[in-house]
């Protein structure tokens, strides 16, 4: 547990030192500006689905950027053996660092768009489940890329379709919350998605990082 917490701290500080997180914050600020301008424009003004759509698309791309920067930082698979004992703790530390950055981004995006005003609890649950799924898929697939040097550019082709279900469930949950419908089905969908993609690395990570 201590090793995992230490590694997560290293990941987060490394992100700050290498200015990866700064880049992400800049991207996030840009997206928030787009959302705000959409909100004020006359023809799209206040359209709930637009705001929700922009939030989830932003989270999808931020998730891909963050998980990629965390894992592709490891230039050689052999470097992973530096983490004494479990490779799983390396994996989870990268997952947690990406999750925390994404949680910060989600907080800013939801606050900027004013979506949390009416349903704070619902928005929180929805965003937490959503970013967990996005980060879990991203971390698993970028972990695959560690031992496959030339495969990096092909990754988005696999990651985007896999993350679409969580994107759809997240958007539908938010839509249901704000239009007074029952979001239970979509929330259950997100929970199932998260459970699957949090369990898969436990099964596969040692096979994937076999050097």
């Amino acid at each position: 547990m201590l090793r995992w917490a230490g590694l997560t701290w290293v990941e987060l500080t490394l992100g700050v030192r290498t200015r990866n997180n700064g880049f992400l914050v800049a991207v996030m600020a840009g997206l928030a500006a787009v959302v705000s301008s959409l909100d004020r424009s006359s023809h799209l003004g206040g359209a709930l689905s637009n705001r929700i759509g922009v939030i989830w698309m932003a989270l999808l791309f931020l998730g891909m950027l963050e998980t990629a920067s965390g894992l592709l930082r490891e230039e050689l698979p052999s470097r992973l053996s530096l983490a004494i004992g479990s490779r799983l703790s390396v994996f989870w530390s990268k997952f947690c660092a990406a999750w925390m950055t994404l949680a910060g981004a989600a907080f800013v995006l939801v606050a900027t768009t004013g979506l949390a005003r009416a349903h704070v609890g619902g928005a929180l649950v929805c965003v937490i489940l959503g970013i967990t799924g996005i980060t879990a898929v991203g971390t698993l697939f970028y972990a695959l890329a560690l031992t496959t040097e030339r495969a990096g550019p092909v990754l988005p082709v696999l990651i985007v379709p896999l993350e679409l279900p969580i994107l759809i469930c997240g958007m539908e949950t938010m839509q249901a919350l704000w239009s007074g419908k029952d979001p239970a089905l979509w929330i259950h969908g997100m929970m199932a998605f998260d459970a699957i993609f949090l369990a898969l690395p436990m099964l596969f990570i040692d096979i994937l990082w076999e050097v």
């Binding site: 031992t147 496959t148 030339r150 495969a151 092909v154 082709v157 696999l158 379709p161 679409l164």
Partner: peptide, 28 residues
């Protein structure tokens, strides 16, 4: 989505040279 995922799988396979590693990663 299914079509995209397995097209991605095939593309992924093509980008790997080492048979052993390709088989391992592709299986996952």
């Amino acid at each position: 989505l299914l079509w995209m995922l397995f097209s991605g799988y095939l593309l992924w396979r093509e980008s790997l040279d080492d048979w052993e590693r390709r088989a391992r990663v592709s299986a996952v």
